[in-house]
Every structure is written in C-alpha cells, then in structure tokens.
C-alpha cells in the first residue's frame, strides 16, 4: 500500500463512468434484445473498431501483469513470442477467420455442430470451451486483484468484485456491441498510456546504457537468451496456434461486416499489439533494474504505476491494466455463457424460443462471471502461466476441428469428437506427469489431436454431402 495521490481515484472513477456510459448507450432501447444483436452485434462492426476489439480481447491481464512479470524475471528474450502470435493471426487470416465470417453462425459450437453434422460434437465443444474460458478468467481476476491490492490496498476479493461487477453490467446491458465499442476505447487507452510511460520510465532509470550494464551484471541472461530458441518456439506455438482458433476471437469475427473486413481488422489488431508488445518488453526489463528483487514478477506493473512515474501517468497505467482485464472478461463472458445458454440449452430444448435463450444467457453471464472467483482466491501459478494453460487447452482441442476442418472436407464426425477429447486430455495429463522430454504440454497436445483427427477420419464414415455444402464449393 502506497501513499497515492487523489489523482488516482479521479482517473479511475472517470474511466469507470466512460466505460459504463458506452455500454449503456450502445445497449439503449431494445438494441440488444435478441441473440443476433447480443451475440454478434448484428454483424455491423467495421475494420478499425473490430481490429481494436480483437487486440483488446487478446491483450489481457496476461499481457500487462503476466508478460511484464515474465520480462521482469527473465529479461528481454521473451519478447520474441510476439512474432509467433502474429504468425497465428496470419494463419487465421488465410484459412480460418474469413471462412468463419462467411458462414454467419452465432457461436463457435454452432459451426462445429453443423460442420460435423453432430449434436454430440457441438455439446462437447461447448463444454470444453466453458472449462477453458473459466481457467482464462481465473488469470484475469487474479491480476485485477493484485493490481488493486498493490496500488490501492483494497483486499483482493473486493478488488476483483468491483472490476467484475462493472464489466458484467455493461456486457449484460449492451451485449457484443457494447463489448466491441468499449474494447476500442480500451485498446486506445492501453496502447497510448503504456507507450507514453516508457520514455519517462527509461529516463527515471538512468538511460538505456546504464540499464543494460546494470541488469547484465545482475544476471547476464537478462540481456541474452534466458529462454532458449526451443523454449521461445514453444511459447510462440502456444500463442500462435491458439490465437487462430480462440473461441472469443472467432466469435468477434462473426461481428464483422465481410471477409475483407476480417482480414483488415486482423491487421489493425496487430498494430495495436505491436505498440503494446514493445512497451511491455521495455518496461518489464527496465523495472528489473529499478527493483532487482520482488516476491513475484507479477507485482512489477503495479509498482511501476504506483511508485515510478508521476501520479497522472501512473493512474492512467492502472486504468490501462484494468482496461486490459475488463475488455477480455467481457468478451470471454459473452462466449462462455453462450456455450451453455445458446448451445447446451438449445440442444436440450430444441424448440426454445429466442426470448427463452436470451433469458438463460443473462443468467449464465452471471454464473460464468462468478465461478472463477472461487478459484482466484488462491491462485495456482503466476498469471502468465495460468493464461498459457488455457491457451494450450484451446489449441490442442480446437485446432484440428476448426482450422483443419474448414479446409479439409475428409474430416468426419468421429474424427472431430476424438480429436477434441484427446487434445484436451493430453494437455492435462502431460502437465500432470511433469512434461516428459522437456516439452511444453501444448506440443504433444496439438500433435496428438491432429494425428487422431486424421486417422479416425480416414477410418470412419464420411459426412453426407448436405453437411459439407455450406463450407466447400466442390463436394
């Protein structure tokens, strides 16, 4: 707890008012009353707002608290996972996202159900999405709690309740459209504030040469390769493969106007990410020279805001981190609650009206937001590694069914179901038995799930022509 100036409270309250205002304004009247509006914003979002929303949803507490913590701990080499993530976007832009937009579904399990002509596959996809996204939210809540506790001295539990309550209110009221427009504002805050803070931080720390000399002496690996190229390849693969099939990103693709909008939005999203990548990499490493020892690297970003930079800049940084958390939580809650209310409920009660589904949706928005809080009270790892676990799960169980399934018409129902289950279980088991061969769990997860997908598809009954018709021109 620091003696912080009143500026922090004014800026924080101002930010909450602006974000709530956007949410309530976009959700005014009857605009978010049906599923088409609530889940995919009426498919009306353009490339710039859409790109910012893609970036804001991806850049979460994992980036500002987690990645910065890892940079603090390990130095500069970790920044090279970003090119891997951008390659993932490229894969998505070439083979996945535009096709998803063209298909005009409401949710990702909708696509799975139709592509594999199987209610079981749709149900499994919905359940696995709900589980993986709950893990993701745990990471967000822990980071929000750390931030508010470090800067304001608010107990962890209350801090996360405040953050989540505000997010749920605007998500609830305005649905995907409110989520996308507030994401846009939040992306501007994230990129702008951190970019502005970096020069101040470098000057405070005594300039680049001094920093480099100091941390090299502290530990030569900080300016060299703390992580080997093999490690970095693993991280890049986690982020790259999962980025291409991440359900909350794919759901955002449905909100865009056309396949070309999708491709442009991905480009604008990468621009936002590049600005943030540079800022986080620099500030994490520079913080190491100012604070050589901390209990956990996750505290580095909060300390930066509270003690290093002038109060106004610090307050804006706190808001930027909260923006990162809230934009991700709102996108994730819409997708994970729709997995239950739209997909599972729709399977259990096929003749449910849209109104009934919407009512279920709002109830599950609350439930999906509250469940991770129980786990966040006692976190099981550093924030970045919680996020990496959920990315690994998504990459392993979803990559074949979504990315390969959109491009290979030989895939069958049994292949999709088998690959989802094998991918999910491989990641969990590989992690539990302590990563044999020194491999990160995502690599066997993705490899096994692709092999199973191919082999099972080869030996099982092909899909009827009608099921493939929406996806392939020449069946």
């Amino acid at each position: 707890m620091f003696n912080i100036s009143d500026t922090f409270y004014y800026v924080l309250i101002g930010y909450f008012v602006i974000i709530l205002g956007i949410g309530l304004w976009t959700g005014r009247g009857d605009k978010s009353k049906n599923s088409e509006e609530f889940l995919v914003a009426g498919r009306s979002i353009g490339a710039v707002v859409g790109g910012a929303a893609l970036a804001a949803t991806q850049m979460s507490a994992g980036t500002f608290v987690g990645s910065m913590g890892v940079h603090w701990m390990t130095g500069v080499s970790y920044q090279w996972f970003w090119p891997g993530l951008w390659l993932g976007w490229l894969v998505s832009a070439l083979w996945v996202a535009p096709k998803m937009q063209k298909f005009r579904a409401l949710t990702v399990p909708d696509y799975i159900g139709q592509r594999y002509n199987s209610k079981l596959a749709k149900g499994i996809a919905a359940v696995l999405i709900f589980v993986a996204l709950t893990v993701s939210l745990i990471g967000q809540y822990v980071a929000g709690g750390i931030l508010l506790q470090t800067v304001f001295g608010i107990p962890m539990l209350y801090g996360s309740i405040i953050t989540i309550a505000i997010t749920i209110i605007y998500t609830f009221k305005g649905g995907m459209k409110a989520s996308a427009y507030s994401d846009f504002v939040q992306a501007l805050i994230m990129a702008g504030c951190f970019f502005a803070a970096v020069p101040i931080l470098v000057i405070q720390a005594g300039g680049m040469e001094h920093i480099a000399a100091f941390i090299t002496e502290l530990d030569p690996r900080l300016t060299g390769f703390y992580y080997s190229v093999k490690d970095l390849f693993g991280f890049a693969m986690v982020f790259g493969v999962s980025m291409a099939v991440m359900p909350y990103e794919l759901a955002k693709m449905y909100t865009l106007k056309s396949p070309r909008t999708v491709r442009l939005a991905i480009g604008f999203g990468m621009v936002f990410q590049a600005i943030v990548a540079l800022s986080v990499s620099l500030s994490g490493t520079v913080m190491r020279s100012l604070f050589p020892t901390l209990n956990t690297g996750d505290a580095a970003s909060s300390l930066l805001a509270a003690t290093v930079v002038p109060p106004l800049v610090g307050a804006l940084l706190v808001v930027a981190i909260l923006a990162a958390i809230m934009s991700t939580v709102s996108g994730v809650i819409i997708v994970s609650s729709s997995a239950i209310s739209h997909d599972i409920y729709g399977l259990l009660k096929p003749n449910a009206t849209d109104k009934e589904k919407m009512r279920m949706n709002k109830i599950w928005c609350l439930i999906a937001g509250v469940i991770p809080m129980f786990f966040a009270i006692r976190p099981f790892d550093m924030v970045q590694f919680i996020i990496i676990l959920q990315s690994s799960l998504i990459a392993a169980f979803f990559f074949p069914a979504v990315a390969i399934g959109l491009n290979w018409k030989g895939a069958t129902k049994a292949g999709a179901i088998a690959s989802m289950i094998v991918g999910f279980c491989t990641v969990i088991i590989w992690r539990e038995i302590g990563n044999p061969l020194g491999l990160h769990e995502v690599i066997p997860g993705v490899v096994f799930s692709c092999i199973v997908y191919y082999v099972v598809s080869k030996f099982t009954k092909p899909l009827p022509r009608e099921a493939l018709l929406p996806f392939f021109k020449d069946v």
């Binding site: 090119p83 951008w86 480099a212 056309s258 480009g267 990468m270 621009v271 540079l278």
Partner: peptide
C-alpha cells in the same frame, strides 16, 4: 540493449489485406 520486424511483417500483411478482394 522487434520494431523493424513488426513494421515489415504487419505492414506487408496490411498491404495484402487491403488489395485482397472478396470472391
């Protein structure tokens, strides 16, 4: 003690995305 990589990769990507038309 990334910028150039990002400018080349993302710049190239945006040019491609801008000139690619929908079928």
């Amino acid at each position: 003690l990334l910028v150039i990589y990002a400018i080349v990769f993302i710049g190239g990507y945006l040019i491609w995305a801008y000139y690619t038309k929908d079928e």
